[in-house]
């Protein structure tokens, strides 16, 4: 079976065949979901090359762990969970700061001052990319991909209350930056 033919099958059918080692079926899953996985990775990492690596790692990890996928959630949700873990793990491996960067609030004030200084409105995607990490992660999962606070908090390893607070912060900052 070709990947094109596999793409006509449902996710469930492709998952079942991929579990049995059918790479064509798994390629069909990749074709169906790579855009959403890459989009999430790109918005979490803000770097196209890193996002590509994370996407590859996500699908390789998914292949190796297909036996653990119990089907209680959609395959797309499961892939997103892996992608979040991969992206956050990548950030953790690459970013232990002995000398901290300037405080987030300082950066916000600087950016806000620039934006308020008759700067034309910037597009939504760029405004999201300019948000502090925690607020951006929550906004991407909740606002773009439609996960609930409980799901987003679970994916990010934070408390639900923290997730809500980060979303509130993201909305406030985004509103300011879009001059809405």
């Amino acid at each position: 079976m070709t990947a094109e033919a596999a793409a006509t099958d449902s996710d469930e059918q492709q998952v079942e065949r991929a579990r049995l080692g059918d790479r064509t079926a798994f390629e069909g899953l990749y074709r169906a979901h790579c855009g959403r996985v890459y989009g999430l990775c790109l918005r979490l990492t803000r770097d196209a090359a890193v996002a590509e690596d994370c996407t590859q790692e996500t699908f390789i990890s998914a292949w190796r762990n297909l036996a653990r996928f119990e089907g209680r959630s959609a395959i797309g949700t499961w892939l997103h969970r892996i992608a979040v873990n991969v992206a956050l793990g990548r950030a953790r491996r690459g970013g232990l700061e002995v000398v901290p960067a300037p405080e987030e609030d300082d950066r916000e004030e600087t950016t806000r001052a620039v934006i308020d200084d008759d700067t034309p409105p910037i597009d939504v995607e760029n405004a999201i990319a300019s948000l502090p990490e925690g607020a951006r992660h929550v906004l991407v999962l909740y606002g773009i991909y439609g996960y609930t606070h409980e799901q987003a908090a679970d994916m990010l390893g934070i408390a639900v209350g923290t997730c809500k607070a980060q979303l509130h912060r993201a909305r406030r900052l985004l509103r300011e930056r879009l001059n809405a």
Binding site: G35, V124, Y145
Partner: peptide
């Protein structure tokens, strides 16, 4: 703001075939 965010495409195609 959230409506504007929600209008963004969920899917973004990578620059190359991965």
């Amino acid at each position: 703001v959230l409506r504007a965010v929600g209008q963004l495409p969920q899917s973004i195609e990578p620059r190359r075939d991965l």
